[in-house]
């Protein structure tokens, strides 16, 4: 049971957002009241929330932040134009 998914909230959601999300989910009636209460409880308790975050949250930022997206020099797509047809394979025919 992924409480973030049940309440449709991000893993950075504040207490206020969790409560608001619970109320909204109650109105939507997509999940049972018991499930929503459990999800809310899981996220309001700091120990339980840390466990849920460990289980269900993925943040790509730390992975991406350390990477360089600088375009390397010396690479030009137009180099294709320099290709001339080789005749080495014609001899095989």
């Amino acid at each position: 049971m992924n409480p973030f998914k049940i309440l449709s909230i991000g893993f950075n959601a504040s207490k206020k957002e969790i409560i608001q999300a619970s109320a909204r989910a109650m109105r939507e009636k997509k999940y049972s009241g018991l499930k929503l209460a459990q999800a809310q409880k899981m996220l309001l308790d700091p120990v339980s929330r840390a466990v849920q975050e460990f289980l269900y949250c993925f943040d790509a930022a730390p992975f991406k932040n350390r990477l360089s997206l600088k375009r390397p020099g010396g690479l030009n797509r137009t180099d294709i134009a320099t290709l001339t047809r080789l005749t080495i394979f014609d001899e095989e025919i």
């Binding site: 997206l69 375009r71 390397p72 010396g74 690479l75 030009n76 797509r77 180099d79 294709i80 320099t82 290709l83 080789l86 080495i88 394979f89």
Partner: peptide
Amino acid sequence: DTADVMFAEQIRTVRRCLAADLYDRFE
């Protein structure tokens, strides 16, 4: 399957172009 030097060079050229193409697409 060939060890032809000129063909190998053409492959390298195309591979470099692919690298450039990847950046173009990413951008």
